[in-house]
């Protein structure tokens, strides 16, 4: 399912280029230009696709990973900077 929802995202991205509507001046429901109606529906479809991504392709374990910080929210970390370890990170604010 995960692969399928990402496939839907790719389809969505391709479907954004609606070259077949390029010169269509018709009106949907008597007032909405075809190109605008297509892209308004596209926006709703995007929301629905992202709902599927959030349901089936959610990165499992990210909450736990976020809570496993080496500095426990300290922010100074262990990385060495090219100006020396003392200046690395710099954010012990939380």
């Amino acid at each position: 399912m995960r692969r399928f929802v990402w496939f839907l995202v790719v389809v969505l991205a391709i479907a954004h280029w609606d070259y077949w509507n390029w010169n269509d001046r018709g009106l949907v429901a008597g007032f909405l230009p075809v190109g605008l109606a297509y892209h308004a529906a596209f926006s709703v479809a995007a929301g629905a696709t992202w709902a599927l991504v959030a349901r089936f392709a959610w990165p499992a374990g990210i909450e736990r990973w976020a809570s496993e910080g080496d500095g426990a929210g300290d922010g100074r970390g262990a990385a060495e900077s090219d100006e020396g370890p003392a200046n690395a990170g710099g954010g012990a604010e939380t």
Binding site: W65, A66, S67, G69, G73, G75, G77
Partner: peptide, 12 residues
Amino acid sequence: RLWAIGKRHGYV
């Protein structure tokens, strides 16, 4: 992912 890293390391 940036949120998770920000929380892990206390970035602002």
